[in-house]
Computed example of a mutant assay.
Amino acid sequence: MVMRWEAFLDQVKERGAYENAEEAERATRTVLALLGAHLVGEVRADLAARLPEDLALVLLNPLQAREPLSPERFVRATAAWIEGATEQTAAWDVSAVLSVAAEAAGEELTGHMLLQLPVGYDLLFGHPQPV
């Protein structure tokens, strides 16, 4: 089931405590563009199929990553792309967006995404894995 654009952004806005939809959209587009560079194949296509069309396009036409970023570097990269962001605010942005994306994806697909990502992303998605 595809999550509607308004529903996705409303949830990001609420979780990120953004003042307006524009801030939520900027964070969402940045985080999904970075995430898209880390996911491949069916996993990326399956997530895109569950996102609103505009966000699916962001995910499917990602910024290119030369190497998988650790969770810490992913947050730093997010901070670099969002004007005025700090690592602390970027961590908040990443968590708000990825937790909504995980909800849209469902448990099984989120598990497949985490298998493609470096260790530690489970916390960014709000899905801590048993050690």
Rank of each mutant, 00 (worst) to 15 (best):
L9E: 06
H38G: 09
D10N: 14
L115A: 15
M113C: 02
A21Q: 14
V58E: 01
S95K: 11
I82N: 10
V75W: 13
H127D: 09
P130F: 00
V2F: 06
W81H: 13
R29E: 02
V31N: 00
L124K: 07
R29K: 10
L57A: 13
L98V: 02
Y18T: 00
A49H: 01
G126L: 03
S99T: 11
V43H: 02
T30M: 02
V131Y: 02
D122Y: 04
V75D: 08
T86S: 15
G16T: 02
E19F: 10
M113P: 01
A17D: 13
A79I: 12
Q64N: 12
G16S: 03
E6W: 02
G84E: 09
R4E: 11
E53D: 14
V12T: 05
V31M: 00
R76F: 10
E25F: 00
L39E: 03
G36A: 07
A104V: 05
R44P: 09
L34N: 08
R4Y: 05
L55G: 04
V100I: 11
T78L: 11
E42H: 02
Q116G: 02
Q88S: 14
V58F: 09
G126F: 07
E25N: 07
D93Y: 04
R4A: 15
D93V: 11
V100L: 09
A17I: 05
A79F: 15
S99A: 10
R50T: 00
F125A: 07
